[in-house]
Simulated scan of single mutants.
Amino acid sequence: MNIRSLTRGDGVVIGAAVLLFIASFLDFYTIDCGDSSFCKDEGENAWKGDFFPVLPSIYLAGLIAAALIVAARFQPAGRNLFGLALDQWGTALSVFAAWSSLWTIIGGPEAFDKGVGQILGLIATLAMAAGALLTQRVPALKVPLMTGAPAGPSPYGHQQQPQPGYGYPGPGAQAGAPAPFGGQPGQPQPGAPGPFGGGQPGPAAQAPAPAAGGDFTPFWFAVPVARPLYAEDGSSNTIAELAPGTWYLAVEQRGQALVAQTQDGRRGVLQDTTGIQRG
């Protein structure tokens, strides 16, 4: 599970879900008795059975929609439920919750006034539906919610802290930041420690990037957009999705493709390597 897979649009959905949960405990309808002595001003929230099916069609539907949208970010690409991806189910459910909430505002019994919970519920469901629908269409909402790249696990079975010159930008660095010692990303610096503890050769001894089938030196890289990581057996099954803003370790080259390792130790083939940034 990689929390950096979440986008700003997902953050909108999560925030709307929190607001919706709070609104469910506030008054949905209130009764204004005026000067009548036969009743008293009071209100009830959506958890009361008097307003069924308000609870399942608005509040529970919205909360389940948010859970499905967020859960989809941690699932391999291509996984679906009855032919639809989890985020597609969540998006449809969020629109349904907003539609149901809108009609309770427009209609409703004349003896009741709109409660705070009803108004906040409409705002929350509309925000959730907008976040779910616009995340893949508005560039600002596609930006990762969190950035940064903690050191990943070593491909040789123990945890190590990569040093500058190996390709990893160093602790706390982000994708897009300049490499240590003023160099360019992907260019090892003379005298800096190598991947196995030795020093990097000077400029005269450095060779160009090896072709497929030659010697390969592992390096850290980041992808410009989310890309699937396929199984090493050559099948079309995806084992993970690489997210922008996170560093991954390339451990092998297969033609134009790379065998990459995620931070939780999973390995797979990145077929689309265009535009990747070397650490």
Rank of each mutant, 00 (worst) to 15 (best):
N2I: 09
R4M: 09
T7C: 03
D10Y: 05
V12G: 04
V13W: 05
A16H: 02
A17H: 01
A17V: 04
L26F: 12
Y29R: 15
I31V: 15
D32Q: 11
C33G: 12
G34I: 06
S36G: 13
S37C: 00
S37M: 03
D41G: 10
E42P: 01
W47E: 02
K48H: 14
D50W: 02
F52I: 10
P53D: 07
P53M: 00
P53Q: 00
P56M: 07
G62I: 02
A65S: 13
A66I: 02
A67Q: 06
L68N: 01
I69E: 03
I69R: 00
F74V: 08
A77S: 13
R79G: 07
F82G: 04
F82I: 11
G83Q: 01
G83F: 05
A85E: 14
D87H: 13
A92W: 06
A92G: 14
L93H: 04
S94D: 04
V95G: 04
V95R: 01
F96V: 13
A98T: 01
A98K: 01
S100W: 05
T104S: 07
I105M: 12
I106C: 03
P109N: 07
P109R: 13
E110F: 12
G115F: 09
I119L: 15
L120E: 03
L122G: 06
I123A: 14
I123R: 01
L126G: 08
M128I: 08
G131I: 00
T135C: 02
P139S: 04
P139K: 00
A140V: 01
M146I: 15
G148W: 08
A149G: 14
A149Q: 11
A149V: 08
A151K: 06
P155L: 03
Y156R: 11
G157I: 07
G157V: 09
Q159T: 11
Q160T: 15
Q160F: 11
P164N: 06
P164L: 11
P164F: 10
G165F: 10
G165P: 12
Y166F: 10
Y168N: 06
G170T: 03
G172K: 00
A173W: 01
Q174Y: 12
A177L: 09
A179S: 14
A179I: 04
A179L: 13
P180M: 09
G183T: 09
P185K: 01
Q187K: 12
P188L: 07
G191D: 05
G194Q: 02
P195D: 06
P195S: 11
G197W: 06
G197C: 13
G198P: 04
G199K: 02
Q200H: 10
G202H: 00
P203T: 11
P203E: 08
A207S: 08
P210K: 05
G213C: 14
G213R: 12
G214M: 12
G214H: 07
G214T: 11
D215W: 00
P218M: 13
A222V: 12
V223I: 11
V225M: 02
R227I: 08
L229E: 02
E232G: 13
E232L: 15
D233K: 15
S235V: 14
A240N: 03
A243K: 12
W247C: 13
Y248E: 10
Y248G: 12
V251S: 14
Q253T: 08
Q253F: 09
Q256T: 13
A257L: 05
A257P: 09
L258D: 07
Q261V: 05
Q263M: 09
Q263Y: 07
D264R: 01
R266K: 14
R267C: 10
L270D: 03
Q271L: 14
G279N: 07
